[in-house]
């Protein structure tokens, strides 16, 4: 095979790629924040024991968990604004889509963690005369948080990967930046290989750290 690899083409444009990576991280962090906020509300609604609250929350989470995120990116970027005669910047549209979509998953993480705490713990708290809020804060959440940690990290990684779809809205995240470099250098192999490598290094090392922390947390919990 006569192909000559030229990674300098990528190196020369490293600044564009790194700027893109920065935007990916920014979108990820903001997405997690919005997703956690909305997801918390959804989980609380589902656990409220009132149908007027739990059913809408159930419908919402089921809908967003069972439809492709890309549809929601387009819906928030083209659909919603155009219907109202507005325009949304790509970042805002991507953040809205990402936040709403991941909220459905975060809600399940929270709900699952809380439901995994044994009923005996609720009863013991109630038997001491604790109110709902205090019981939640002092007894249930500290135990649920440990069990939520692993699925929470997993969902957050999924979210980071999902941010790449914002490239389809011409948002200058990592992949869009890569595409820009490709049009300038005609080196798709090198550029996309480096991009894959970047994501791999970031996500794999983060997951190793998370695993290590989790194992440490388990040991501390067993004490």
């Amino acid at each position: 095979m006569g192909y000559v690899w030229d990674f300098f083409a990528v190196a020369r444009n490293a600044d564009i790629l790194l700027a893109g990576l920065g935007q990916t991280l920014l979108l990820s962090v903001c997405g997690i924040a919005v997703g956690v906020a909305i997801g918390g509300v959804l989980a609380a609604m589902r656990l409220s024991g009132r149908r007027t609250l739990s059913w809408p929350a159930l419908a919402f989470t089921e809908f967003y968990r069972n439809t492709p995120p890309l549809v929601h990116f387009f819906w928030f970027f083209y659909g919603l604004p155009m219907a109202f005669g507005l325009t949304l910047p790509p970042f805002a549209a991507a953040l809205a889509a990402l936040g709403v979509q991941s909220a459905a998953f975060f809600a399940e993480v929270f709900r699952g963690g809380i439901l995994s705490v044994e009923t005996g713990q609720w009863e013991a708290g109630r038997a001491l005369g604790m109110g709902r809020v205090r019981l939640m804060r002092r007894i249930i959440l500290p135990q649920a948080a440990r069990r939520m940690a692993a699925p929470f990290v997993e969902r957050s990684f999924e979210l980071v990967k999902t941010t790449t779809l914002a490239a389809a809205l011409a948002f200058h995240e990592t992949i869009y930046s890569a595409m820009v470099i490709v049009t300038q250098t005609y080196r798709p192999l090198e550029v996309y290989t480096v991009v894959a490598g970047l994501f791999f290094v970031v996500l794999f090392s983060a997951s190793q750290i998370a695993e290590w922390l989790e194992a440490r947390g388990r040991r501390a919990g067993a004490r």
Binding site: E118, G120, Q121, E123, A124, R126, A127, L128, G129, M130, G131, R138, I139, P142, Q143, R146, G221
Partner: peptide
Amino acid sequence: NRLRARVGMVFQQFNLFPHMTALENVMEG
């Protein structure tokens, strides 16, 4: 809550709070 604070309960399954020490369990109420 007021009733339960005045009527204590000991469970078959103990139901101690696993994230607290013995002392913290007793202090909690």
